[in-house]
């Protein structure tokens, strides 16, 4: 297909598992496949245990020691990252693909100045004279802090606010001009107004730098007007994928539907002061409560059928861009 020719990133049949102390493997990702076009923003939606952070880490092979990619390929700009040697990998990390971690207060070195942390990234990938390096660091920081670049550069992380720390992380990630940024819950720990601000930064960077982005979040509301496509993960599998407009407006998988319903809608609150319960999804998505066979969502699903317990549904294309893994759509 012509699509594959131009894809920036093509993940094929990715399987990741974790060994626990008892030696029992836990499957964190099962057969995840998707593609990302240059400049595209893919929103990955998932709750804890969905494997969304595992996905972020495995794309750059940054899994913890007990995590293992057991199967699949990650083609980035034509090269399989899973086969790359350590030097090649080091050259890709931070330079071609950047990762922005969840907790800005933990992802920065506590006793290094912000400016130096950005400079280190530049220095790791380009051998530049000191003066040029300094100037480049200044420029990079200035793109996210147009007004107070100097002060921020000399500050230590503990002297910065959450939003400022997140901006420093963004500066690190764009320093070497990557073509893909993977952001794992980059706004989860921020205030709502700061959250909006950071989303705005991402938005403008994308326009300026023509970046592709994988934006991982648990909050579907953040993706509207931001992501081009949405991919919903549950229990380590893709349950729904499609154009953001379609998935957000008319979710099809029972999980996606239920998830969207469980989010409070302040504007739709009845005027008489009466409080109504939220349509919550029963149970939880802890690995231990996932079924060993059949559809992973089956125990919590309101529409479950006998079939759901027996085997796993496959991703079925419905409409132009949307695909859902649910037997309801198998004909």
């Amino acid at each position: 297909m012509g699509l594959e020719m131009t894809a920036l990133l093509a993940v094929q049949d990715l399987h990741v598992s974790y060994r626990s102390r008892g030696g029992i493997a836990f499957q964190a990702l099962t057969g995840v496949s998707f593609q990302l076009m240059p400049g595209e923003i893919l929103g990955v939606l998932g709750e804890s245990g969905s494997g969304k952070s595992t996905l972020a880490a495995s794309l750059l092979r940054l899994l913890p020691e007990h995590g293992q990619i057991t199967k699949g390929s990650v083609l980035f700009e034509g090269k399989d990252i899973l086969q790359a040697g350590s030097v090649e990998l080091q050259g890709i990390r931070g330079s071609r693909i950047s990762l922005i971690f969840q907790e800005p207060s933990l992802a920065l070195h506590p006793t290094m100045r912000a400016g130096e942390q950005v400079r280190q990234v530049l220095a790791a990938h380009e051998s530049l004279p000191k003066r040029v390096l300094k100037e480049k660091t200044r420029q990079v920081l200035a793109t996210v802090f147009p007004e107070e670049e100097g002060r921020i550069s000399h500050s230590y992380p503990h002297q910065l606010s959450g939003g400022q720390r997140q901006r420093v992380l963004i500066a690190q990630s764009i320093a070497c001009g990557p073509s893909l940024i993977i952001a794992d819950e980059p706004t989860a720990s921020l205030d709502p107004t700061t959250q909006m601000e950071i989303l705005g930064v991402f938005q403008s960077l994308r326009e300026k730098l023509d970046l592709a982005m994988i934006f991982i979040t648990h909050n579907p509301a953040l993706l509207a007007g931001f992501a081009d496509r949405v991919l919903v993960l549950y229990g380590g599998r893709i349950v729904e994928v499609g154009a953001a407009a379609t998935v957000l407006a008319s979710p099809q998988h029972p999980y996606t539907k239920a998830l969207f319903r469980s989010v409070p809608r302040p504007l739709e609150r009845p005027r008489n002061g009466e409080k109504v319960k939220l349509p919550a999804i029963p149970g939880d998505s802890l690995p231990s409560s996932l079924p060993s066979e059949g559809c992973p969502f089956e125990p919590r699903c309101a529409d479950r059928m006998d079939l759901c317990r027996k085997r796993e549904p496959e991703l079925i294309r419905i409409g132009g861009t949307q695909a859902v893994s649910c037997f309801k759509f198998e004909s």
């Binding site: 990390r93 931070g94 971690f101 920065l108 280190q120 990234v121 790791a124």
Partner: peptide, 8 residues
């Protein structure tokens, strides 16, 4: 891990 992810 983040620094490693930046290719340090």
């Amino acid at each position: 891990v983040a620094a490693k992810g930046h290719g340090i």
